[in-house]
C-alpha cells in the first residue's frame, strides 16, 4: 500500500445522497450532500431522531442500498466502483451489528457454526485454527467458549446475543464496524456491559466504528467524534467534547437539553417549544431544514441553505446563526456537575 492511501481516512463519505423511490413516483431524499470521514481507530457517531437519515448512511456505506450521488471510499477505494467479487472481498473489512440481537443470529445454527461461517466463507485457516480463533474472539466479548459453542441463539439472553453478534462481526478482523442502534434494545445493566466491550475492542484491536444511535448519553460514552443529523443533512460535526460542551447548532443544543438526567439537581428538560414535530422528509422546509422548529430563525434561514463551515478545531456547523462557542452553550445537562 502506498503512502498516500495510508494517510487517507479509513472511511470517507463524500457528498453522499440516498434517495428512495416511493409508490406513485414520489422520491424520498433520505440523505442529501453528506460528507464525513472516519479515521483509523476512531469512533464516529451519527445521532439524530427518527427519519434523519442515519441508518440510510449506514446502508449506503455497507453498499446495501444504491446511492444516488456522491462516493463512499474505504481505505481510498471507491466501493461503488467495485465488481461483485471485489466488493465481497471488501466486505471482509466492513462488518455490522444491528439493533435486534436475536433476529441477527440464525436460530438453527449453533454458536460454533455462526462464528466459524465467516472464516469458512473467506477460506481462512484450517479447521483447528478456525476453532482456536473463535475461542479467542469469544473471550474478547467475555463469553466462555466451553459453555456456549454448542448452544443455539434462543438459549441466550438479548445481551448475550448481542455479544455473539459482536464476536461474529469482529471475527474477520474488520477495519470498520458499523453499529446501527446496537445497544438500543438492551436493558440498562446489559447496555453497560456491551458499551464496555465496544470500548475495550476499540483499545485492544484499534477498531474503527461508525456508531449510529438516537441516545446521546450512549454516544457520549463511545464516540470520539459526532455528526448530528436532521432531515437528511449534517447540521453539526465535531469532537465529542466540542458537540457536548460547545454545541453551536440550535438543534444540537435542543437535543442535548431534551435528554432526561438521573440527577435530582439537574432541572427537568424543557420541551423544545410549541412548534410541533419534525416535518415530513418528503417535503423538507426550504433553506435551513431546522428553521420551522428553531427559536433563532430569521428571514435568511428560509431563503438560503446554510453551508457547513468550520468554527473551531475539528468542529463545523451548518447554521446562519451558530451559538458562540464561549458561554452561550450553557447547558445544565452537561455543565452542572463536572465533579
Amino acid at each position: 500500500m502506498n503512502a498516500a492511501l495510508d494517510s487517507a481516512p479509513l472511511l470517507s463519505v463524500q457528498e453522499l445522497g440516498v434517495t428512495y423511490a416511493l409508490a406513485g413516483g414520489v422520491a424520498l431524499r433520505a440523505v442529501e450532500d453528506v460528507s464525513l470521514d472516519v479515521a483509523r481507530g476512531e469512533t464516529l457517531a451519527l445521532v439524530g431522531e427518527s427519519g434523519c437519515g442515519k441508518s440510510s448512511i449506514a446502508k449506503a456505506v455497507l453498499q446495501l442500498h444504491p446511492i444516488s450521488s456522491g462516493r463512499v471510499l474505504l481505505q481510498g477505494r471507491d466501493l461503488g466502483s467495485l465488481g461483485r467479487r471485489e466488493l465481497r472481498e471488501a466486505r471482509r473489512s466492513l462488518q455490522m451489528i444491528f439493533q435486534d440481537p436475536i433476529a441477527s443470529l440464525n436460530p438453527r445454527r449453533r454458536v460454533r457454526d455462526i462464528l466459524e461461517a465467516p472464516l469458512r466463507i473467506h477460506g481462512i485457516g484450517t479447521a483447528n485454527e478456525r476453532r482456536a480463533h473463535v475461542e479467542r474472539v469469544l473471550a474478547l466479548v467475555h463469553m466462555d467458549p466451553a459453555a456456549v459453542l454448542d448452544r443455539y441463539p434462543h438459549e441466550f439472553s438479548g445481551g448475550q446475543c448481542q455479544r455473539l453478534s459482536i464476536a461474529r462481526a469482529i471475527i474477520l478482523e474488520p477495519s470498520l464496524l458499523v453499529c446501527d442502534e446496537a445497544v438500543s434494545a438492551l436493558d440498562v445493566s446489559v447496555r453497560a456491559q456491551i458499551l464496555n466491550v465496544l470500548n475495550e475492542l476499540r483499545t485492544s484491536l484499534g477498531l474503527s466504528m461508525l456508531f449510529i444511535s438516537h441516545d446521546l448519553a450512549v454516544v457520549r460514552n463511545v464516540a470520539d467524534r459526532i455528526a448530528v443529523m436532521y432531515l437528511g443533512k449534517i447540521c453539526e460535526i465535531g469532537s465529542t467534547d466540542a458537540i457536548f460542551l460547545r454545541s453551536a447548532h440550535p438543534y444540537t443544543a435542543a437535543l442535548i437539553r431534551a435528554v432526561p438526567v438521573a440527577d435530582p439537581d439537574v432541572p427537568r428538560p424543557e420541551p423544545p417549544s410549541d412548534v410541533g414535530e419534525i416535518p415530513s422528509p418528503l417535503a423538507p422546509p426550504s433553506g435551513c431544514r431546522f428553521r420551522t422548529r428553531c427559536p433563532m430563525a430569521q428571514a435568511i434561514c428560509s431563503a438560503e441553505v446554510p453551508t457547513i463551515k468550520a468554527i473551531g478545531n475539528d468542529h463545523a456547523v451548518a447554521c446562519h446563526f451558530p451559538r458562540s462557542a464561549d458561554g452561550a452553550a450553557g447547558n445544565p445537562n452537561v455543565d452542572n456537575q463536572q465533579q
Partner: peptide
Amino acid sequence: SIPRLDMPAHVRLS
C-alpha cells in the same frame, strides 16, 4: 451503569 452526559468519553461503566 447509566452513561451520563457529564462523563468523559470512553469511561468504563460499572
